[in-house]
Simulated assay, not measured.
Amino acid sequence: MKTFKKIIEFLNRMKEIDLWGDKMEDLSYKEEEYIHRVSTQNPYGLIGLILGGIAFTFGPQYGFIPVITLIFCIVTLFTFDKEKEDNPWPFYLGILLSLIGFCMFIIGATHHLIL
């Protein structure tokens, strides 16, 4: 359990990193204050939703993709903060899409994609 808590703490710290370093550049104090006050979207939820779509699309052929996506979505669901972030649904949809892809892999169903 300690390891799981450390992983969640690490993921929460990673959400705050500004990769390009210009997030707060040229903003007034009131604008910065407003940005910190407004609800945001959890980046792991968006990643989980995209991975869920990939798991739904390619999961019936490759069974490991939905499993990895399901694990990712469930672990990162614990990084959701109700006070700072506004929408847990990308996590739920990512879990649902990966479960559908995994169930399709188990029963042997496939998509008929137009490529």
Score class of each variant (00 low, 15 high):
I100F: 09
N42K: 12
Y29F: 09
T69H: 00
A55D: 00
L99T: 01
K84G: 07
F72S: 03
I17R: 09
L70F: 12
D26I: 01
I100M: 09
F91G: 05
N42I: 01
W20D: 15
L46P: 02
T76N: 10
I68C: 04
T40Y: 07
Q61W: 13
I54P: 02
D22E: 14
E16C: 03
C73F: 09
P60K: 01
C73I: 07
F105E: 00
I65T: 02
E83R: 13
G52K: 04
L46S: 08
G63S: 10
W89I: 14
V38Y: 05
E85P: 01
M24R: 07
F80R: 07
F58P: 03
I74N: 01
H36L: 11
I35F: 05
I50R: 03
D18C: 11
E31P: 07
P66C: 06
D81E: 13
G108T: 13
F56D: 01
T40V: 09
I68R: 01
K82H: 13
T69A: 14
C73R: 03
F58C: 10
I106D: 01
V38R: 10
L93F: 15
L99Q: 01
R37M: 06
R37F: 08
P43V: 12
Y92G: 05
F58V: 06
Q41F: 13
I35E: 09
L19M: 14
A55W: 00
E16A: 06
E16P: 00
P90T: 07
K15V: 00
G53T: 10
I71T: 08
L19W: 15
D86V: 10
L49P: 07
D26L: 09
Y29K: 11
